[in-house]
């Protein structure tokens, strides 16, 4: 599992790892039943504290992305298609929300934003 972290990023390290693992599960790169590296080996690889990797896995487990099997380690949880789709939608929703907030801050009206979106969408497709 390839994960990279940046010390210069404003996001906490646990958040960076969390997002990357989520991304790999949503994209299908990590499949249900795949084993995640142990807390210690991931911490060692990334040169971070095991407290941080533990925190990340706990969060992933709470969000339903992985299952912790005691004595065996952590595995990617079986995802139902509905859940995965929802997660993909959420990624887009978050990005759009960011754009909307920024537009409001800059005083760009909805009509202009919509026009911009349509032009850009045309260009990319």
């Amino acid at each position: 599992m390839k994960i990279m972290i940046s010390n210069a990023s404003p996001d906490p390290i646990y958040e960076q790892i969390l997002q990357q693992i989520k991304q790999k599960i949503i994209s299908g790169e990590l499949k249900a039943g795949d084993a995640l590296p142990s807390l210690r080996s991931l911490a060692r690889d990334l040169g971070i504290s095991v407290i941080t990797t533990k925190r990340t896995y706990e969060e992933l487990e709470r969000a339903g992305f992985i299952d912790a099997v005691s004595g065996k380690g952590c595995f990617v949880a079986a995802q139902n298609a509905e859940f995965l789709k929802e997660q993909k939608m959420k990624v887009i929703e978050d990005k759009l929300s960011e754009v909307i907030l920024e537009a409001q801050r800059l005083g760009i009206p909805y009509s202009e934003l919509k026009a911009m979106f349509e032009v850009l969408y045309e260009e990319k497709s």
Binding site: P12, E15, S49, I51
Partner: peptide, 8 residues
């Protein structure tokens, strides 16, 4: 405290 706590 933990370094993670500081980081986060």
């Amino acid at each position: 405290l933990s370094i993670n706590e500081i980081e986060e």
